[in-house]
Amino acid sequence: MPFRKRKPSLLLIEDNPADIELVQEWVRERGLDLEIGLAGDSDEAMARLEAHYQDSSGHLPDLIMLDINLPRVSGLDFLKTIKDDLRFCRIPIVMLTSSKAQDDVDRSYSAHANAYVHKGVELDRFFRSLNCIYCLFFETAVLPQN
């Protein structure tokens, strides 16, 4: 496991304020030391990634959580953009969405999403899902050097 000298970071690409609030509440409730970047759409997300990439002192997020229902460019299209971009393609991406459509699931994995997680409506369930994601990507999996 690589030595981490910095805070683990997460880029949450989500335009629903309630979901942003819930994720933030989950971090507070769990007392996690996690840096959360926020982007409301794909343009904002790309701008953030570009900024991280060009800033020599900064670093790319360790994980991206990506909603499918985004204004203008959909999460699925943005997923393809990222995975086609050599600078960012190694960042693990979890699709975090309310869509249960099998079509969305299949297309996400076809575009190399690293996981597809349904948000769920029960708060407890949603928090459990977030816990599992955190556990896998920040505590268990070995991540690429970005």
């Binding site: 629903n16 304020p17 309630a18 609030e21 229902n69 869509s99 948000k119 409506v121 708060l123």
Partner: peptide
């Protein structure tokens, strides 16, 4: 699209 605001409403109510 209606799922999103409903999720928001339920999310806040549950919080």
């Amino acid at each position: 699209d209606l799922q999103e605001p409903l999720r928001g409403m339920l999310g806040y109510l549950q919080l």
